[in-house]
Simulated assay, not measured.
Amino acid sequence: MEESLQQIAPYIPALLLGVALSAASGFRVFVPLLVGNLAAKFGLFSLAENMTWLGETPATIVLAIAVVFELAAYYIPVVDNLLDTIAGPAAVLAGTLLTTSFLHIEDPVLQWGLGLVAGGGVAGTIQAGTSLLRLGSTKFTAGLGNNILTSIENFMSVVISLFAVWIPVLIGFIALYFVIWVWRKLYQRRQAKNSV
Rank of each mutant, 00 (worst) to 15 (best):
V35T: 10
D80S: 03
S131F: 07
Q127E: 13
F163M: 14
L15C: 09
D107K: 06
L135R: 14
V62T: 12
T96W: 11
R189H: 13
A9G: 08
F27L: 01
L47M: 14
K41I: 03
V158K: 10
P89M: 01
F173T: 09
G129Q: 10
L34P: 04
F140T: 13
G36D: 00
G26N: 02
Q7D: 12
A24W: 06
L132H: 04
A64E: 03
W181A: 14
T150Y: 01
T138G: 07
S101I: 12
L16R: 11
K41Q: 14
S25L: 05
V196Q: 09
V179N: 03
L15G: 04
V35N: 04
T138C: 02
I12Y: 12
N147K: 09
K139Y: 15
L38M: 14
L33S: 05
G95K: 05
V92M: 10
I167E: 14
Y177D: 10
T85L: 12
W183T: 12
G36I: 02
I76V: 15
A91G: 03
G120A: 08
P168V: 09
S46M: 01
Q111P: 00
L162I: 11
G143L: 10
V165T: 12
L21K: 04
K139P: 00
I180Y: 06
W181M: 15
G36C: 05
K139V: 13
A123N: 07
L54S: 04
L38Y: 00
G95R: 06
I160M: 08
W53G: 06
G43I: 15
F42I: 13
S137Y: 01
L71R: 02
A128W: 09
S161P: 07
L34E: 08
V31F: 03
L176P: 06
I105Q: 00
R184W: 12
A20D: 01
V158G: 11
V62N: 01
V31R: 08
P108T: 03
L186S: 13
S46R: 08
V169Q: 11
V29C: 01
L133G: 08
L82N: 07
F69S: 01
A142P: 00
E56S: 09
L33H: 07
V79P: 04
A64V: 07
V169L: 07
S131P: 05
S195N: 13
R189D: 08
F102E: 04
G88N: 02
P77I: 12
N194Q: 15
L82P: 02
I76W: 10
L83V: 08
T141Y: 07
I174V: 15
I167L: 15
W166Q: 09
L110R: 02
G136F: 11
L149V: 15
S131G: 15
F155L: 14
N194T: 04
A90M: 07
L34Q: 09
G121I: 07
G143D: 14
F102V: 13
L176R: 06
W53C: 05
A90L: 13
G136H: 05
